[in-house]
Structure formats: C-alpha cells, structure tokens
Amino acid sequence: MNRLLEAEGLVGGRSGHTLFGPLDLALAAGGALRVTGGNGSGKSTLLRLLAGLLDPMSGVVRANAALRYLGHHDAVKPSFTVAENLIFWRRFNGSGSSASALAAVGLDRLAATPARYLSAGQRRRLALARTLDPAAPIWLLDEPTNGLDAASIAMLEAALARHRGAGGIAVVATHAAILLPEAQTLELGLT
C-alpha cells in the first residue's frame, strides 16, 4: 500500500495549548479525508501541520509527495493580472503548464484582468486554480468553499474527483456539505 500522507501520534496546539491528538492518519492513492469540527477545534492547525508550516507538539508527519495547500488567505497579488498570479506560482513551484487551470475554475475569460477587480469568490477561485495543481498528488484544502457559489462548488467537487481518480489524495477541512465520496472523516473537538 503506497501511503502518500501519514501522521503518527500527532498532537497539535497553539501557543502551548493542546488542541487535539494524539491521532494517526494514513492516506493512500485515491483517498480523501474530510476534517470537521467547530470553531477553534484545530482544523486549520491540523492542515498547517500536515503541510509542514507548523511543527507538531509531538508526533510525526510524513508527506511522500509534492503537496499544495490552500489556506484562509488567497495569496493573490492585486496588481498582477489573473494569469500572471497563476503563472508565477506555477513557475515558482516548478510545475507544468497552467493553460487549462483557469478554465477549470471558470476564470479563463478574466485572464488578463488585474486581480484587484475580482470579487471575493473569484479570488478564491484563483487561489483554487493555484492549489488544484495536477503536478502535486497531495492537496490540503482549508475551507475551500469560502465565498464560492453553487456552480463553483460543483466544479471543485469535479476537480477533486478527477484528482483522486488519477491517484491523488485530498484533505479537506470544511463546514460545508461538499461531495467527497468514500472519504474518511475526522471530527475534531470531541474530546
């Protein structure tokens, strides 16, 4: 079994206070994990731990492939056009062409528009276009549906299904009812 992402005895916290754990996770090709829980239960902390942005209070995280992380912020530069924003991240991360990525989130007609004119939902879609990168097998999405309309959520679900079909995995922390068939579920804040 080829595990793309594993965690053992993972304990997460903020400012010296334990939020959750210890918990074990393992995701193999095609897998998905839905993380739920109330405000302050540690969903974002868990995703940041998995991404390697935070150090765990104890335990280990092993990511055995390239990963993309979508946080609360969209990492969009307002003075760049939509296409420039995306192209920068693709080049920086050394992943391939971005030609279809904008079309996949319905932003292809806005490619030459400076990002400062985008609505909050459009900026979120641009951030998704950056994150939903086929070059990276591991996707970590923190509240990906924030600001998205129903059509955009459907498009995200389709992208997740394609990604998992191609052997990728996804960890999605969300309050929203997003379609994630046969996903493992982890509810934080139950202790």
Binding site: V11, G13, G16, T18, M57, S58
Partner: peptide, 8 residues
C-alpha cells in the same frame, strides 16, 4: 495531558 504535566 502528558504534555501539560511536563510543562508544569
């Protein structure tokens, strides 16, 4: 829990 004990 063990973590907070250690800190104390």
């Amino acid at each position: 829990m063990t973590g907070s004990l250690h800190r104390f």
